[in-house]
């Protein structure tokens, strides 16, 4: 491992750690204003939707994003499993199996 790679790992790790930890230190010292508490109450649904939709799209610089057909197809049985089972382990296993079947059949 070169010094360049090690430096990149340590500095990126430090930056990421600060991003993760500084909010905890600030919140411990100061009480958040009401508007920020309200703003943060929407973070779960907003960020989970954003992360999921990102996995359905492929970024193409200068163009509209493409659609990740495999992920979109595998989402359907997975969503059905969520509605029926409401159990995260079942949902994940159905998702993995759906994707394996889609690849096996050569659909995507």
């Amino acid at each position: 491992m070169t010094e360049y790679v090690l430096a990149a790992i340590i500095l990126s790790g430090l930056a990421t750690w600060l991003i993760r930890v500084v909010p905890f230190i600030l919140v411990k010292r100061f009480t958040l204003p009401a508007w920020l508490v309200e703003f943060l109450s929407f973070v779960p649904v907003a960020i989970l939707t954003a992360i999921y939709v990102e996995s359905l799209l492929t970024y193409r610089p200068g163009q509209w994003p493409g659609v990740n057909i495999a992920n979109l197809l595998a989402s359907l049985p997975t969503f059905l499993a969520a509605v029926i089972s409401k159990n995260l382990l079942v949902i994940v296993i159905v998702g993995i199996a759906s994707m394996a079947v889609i690849r096996l059949l050569g659909w995507a």
Binding site: V92, I96, S98, R103
Partner: peptide, 26 residues
Amino acid sequence: VLGLDFAVVAMFIGLLYLQVITDRTH
């Protein structure tokens, strides 16, 4: 090939769905 790469997407589908149906704050 084993579909393992989709595990994380499936998990977000599950967590998003469960979040929306069980969160009573909104």
